[in-house]
């Protein structure tokens, strides 16, 4: 999983601290944010293969952060990782563009598998987007 870039967003600082440490040991590059606003700033500056996002956070909540992340970058792969969530919230999250909805506590191997899937999907979407752009340019230039 070397080089996969992840943004971890959760207001439980001890949780992000220990989880990011374990992810880094496994070769991932991890940035951490304690709230939705900072997450948006980071996602605007950096390209992430996956964003791991909590639902209940001070200020901007997870669903609102998700919607803004997707609006900013439709290819972004967001995994919602939260405590006891309602079915209504999980449906809302998936409709808002989340790739996956997971409940805490989570085994790191299960989370890493989802991150790998997010990375693969993100790469595939990026390639498709580049192909589309090249095809569009080719058409426009009449090549």
């Amino acid at each position: 999983m070397d080089g996969i870039r992840v943004l971890l967003v959760d207001d439980e600082e001890e949780f992000t601290s220990v989880l990011s440490e374990r992810m880094q040991t496994r070769g991932l590059i991890v940035d951490v944010s304690a709230n939705g606003q900072d997450a948006l700033t980071l996602a605007n500056e950096e390209t992430y293969d996956a964003v791991i996002l909590d639902l209940a956070m001070p200020g901007m909540d997870g669903i609102e952060t998700l919607k803004r992340l997707v609006k900013m970058n439709p290819d972004i792969q967001v995994i919602l990782l939260t405590g006891h969530a309602t079915l209504q919230k999980s449906v809302e999250a998936m409709k808002s563009g989340a790739m996956e909805f997971m409940e805490k506590p989570v085994k790191i191997d299960v989370l890493l598998e989802k991150i790998q899937q997010a990375h693969d999907k993100h790469e595939q979407l990026t390639e498709t987007r580049i192909d589309d752009m090249l095809s569009d340019i080719t058409k426009r230039m009449g090549w």
């Binding site: 949780f15 220990v18 989880l19 374990r22 405590g83 805490k104 506590p105 790191i108």
Partner: peptide, 13 residues
Amino acid sequence: NNVISIVEQLAGL
């Protein structure tokens, strides 16, 4: 649940 999640990750560490 947050507490349990943290303990789980610390045990993993």
